Amino acid sequence: MKQALDCFNELGVEATTIDTIKARCETSVGAIYHHFGNKEGILSALFFAAQDDQRQHLEQELAKTDSLRDAVYSIVSSYLDWVVAHPSWARFLFQARSSVSKGPFHQELKARNAKNYQELKEKLLSFEYKDTKIVQPFEILSSLIVGPSENYCRAWLAHRVQTSPSDYRDEFAESAWRSLQR
C-alpha cells in the first residue's frame, strides 16, 4: 500500500496507472485486480485507510474531553497533529477526495462521512453550553472548527509555509472556539 500511496502522491491521481503501481510494488496486474478490482479500488482503499486512521486519532482525543471548549480544542489539535505525523497520508487525502467522491466508491464515502458527521454532532451536542450560544446551523460547525487549520495544513504540505501546523495549535484552537460563539 505504501508504494501505491507514493505513486499517487508523486504522480497525481490521474497520472498514476495500474502499470505504475504494479512496477513500484513488484507484483502482477492479476494480484492487483484480485485484491482491489481496479485503480479506483486502490485509491479508495488508501483513502478509507487514511480517513479511518485520522478518525481514530480524533476519537481518542475526544474521549478525553469533558466540555465543548475542550472538544473544539481536541478536534483542532488532533487534526493538526495527525497531518504533521502523517504528511504523505494527509497530502493524499487532499488530492484524492474529489476522485473518490466521483468514483465507484462515492456511496461508501458518503455513508462514512454521514456516520462520522453524526457521531461528531452527537458528541458536541452532549455538552452543556452554559452561557455560550453556539453558531447555528450545525452543518457549518466543522468548517468553522477545522477550516483555517486545514487551509494552513495545505500550505504547509505544499511547502508554501515552513512552520509546523502543530506550532500554531493554540492559535487555531482558540480561533475555532471564538468562531462558534455568538
Results as ranks from 00 to 15, higher is better:
residue 25 C to K: 13
residue 44 S to Q: 01
residue 4 A to F: 08
residue 16 T to H: 02
residue 21 I to A: 05
residue 57 H to Y: 13
residue 6 D to Q: 14
residue 47 F to E: 04
residue 23 A to K: 11
residue 57 H to I: 12
residue 21 I to Q: 05
residue 11 L to N: 11
residue 68 L to E: 04
residue 35 H to K: 15
residue 32 I to L: 15
residue 31 A to W: 08
residue 28 S to T: 15
residue 10 E to I: 10
residue 22 K to D: 01
residue 27 T to A: 11
residue 8 F to Y: 11
residue 9 N to Y: 11
residue 4 A to D: 04
residue 70 D to M: 14
residue 10 E to A: 15
residue 4 A to L: 11
residue 14 E to L: 07
residue 7 C to H: 04
residue 7 C to M: 13
residue 62 L to K: 10
residue 28 S to M: 07
residue 56 Q to K: 15
residue 24 R to D: 01
residue 35 H to C: 06
residue 26 E to F: 08
residue 60 Q to H: 13
residue 22 K to E: 06
residue 46 L to Q: 03
residue 9 N to A: 04
residue 74 S to Q: 13
residue 71 A to W: 08
residue 16 T to Y: 02
residue 45 A to I: 00
residue 4 A to I: 07
residue 59 E to I: 13
residue 43 L to V: 09
residue 48 F to A: 05
residue 20 T to F: 00
residue 68 L to N: 05
residue 20 T to Q: 10
residue 41 G to S: 03
residue 35 H to Y: 14
residue 74 S to V: 05
residue 44 S to A: 15
residue 39 K to Q: 04
residue 12 G to I: 04
residue 75 I to W: 08
residue 67 S to E: 12
residue 15 A to Q: 14
residue 10 E to M: 10
residue 70 D to G: 15
residue 8 F to L: 02
residue 73 Y to I: 06
residue 48 F to P: 04
residue 62 L to S: 09
residue 20 T to V: 10
residue 22 K to P: 02
residue 11 L to S: 12
residue 57 H to P: 00
residue 48 F to C: 05
residue 32 I to N: 05
residue 5 L to G: 03
residue 46 L to W: 08
residue 50 A to G: 08
residue 58 L to D: 07
residue 50 A to F: 01
residue 45 A to N: 05
residue 43 L to M: 09
residue 74 S to R: 12
residue 18 I to S: 08
residue 74 S to Y: 00
residue 9 N to K: 06
residue 62 L to D: 09
residue 55 R to A: 09
residue 14 E to I: 08
residue 11 L to I: 00
residue 59 E to C: 12
residue 21 I to D: 03
residue 14 E to F: 02
residue 17 T to V: 04
residue 49 A to G: 05
residue 60 Q to F: 01
residue 21 I to G: 04
residue 43 L to D: 07
residue 24 R to H: 06
residue 18 I to V: 15
residue 36 F to K: 05
residue 19 D to P: 00
residue 10 E to G: 09
residue 19 D to F: 01
residue 4 A to P: 06
residue 64 K to L: 14
residue 66 D to P: 00
residue 9 N to F: 10
residue 22 K to T: 11
residue 65 T to V: 08
residue 14 E to H: 08
residue 11 L to H: 13
residue 22 K to G: 01
residue 72 V to A: 07
residue 67 S to N: 10
residue 9 N to P: 09
residue 56 Q to F: 06
residue 65 T to A: 07
residue 17 T to D: 05
residue 73 Y to M: 07
residue 24 R to G: 00
residue 23 A to P: 00
residue 45 A to C: 02
residue 69 R to L: 09
residue 67 S to R: 09
residue 6 D to A: 14
residue 63 A to P: 03
residue 66 D to V: 05
residue 70 D to N: 14
residue 67 S to Y: 07
residue 40 E to N: 11
residue 66 D to M: 08
residue 60 Q to I: 09
residue 35 H to S: 10
residue 74 S to C: 13
residue 24 R to P: 00
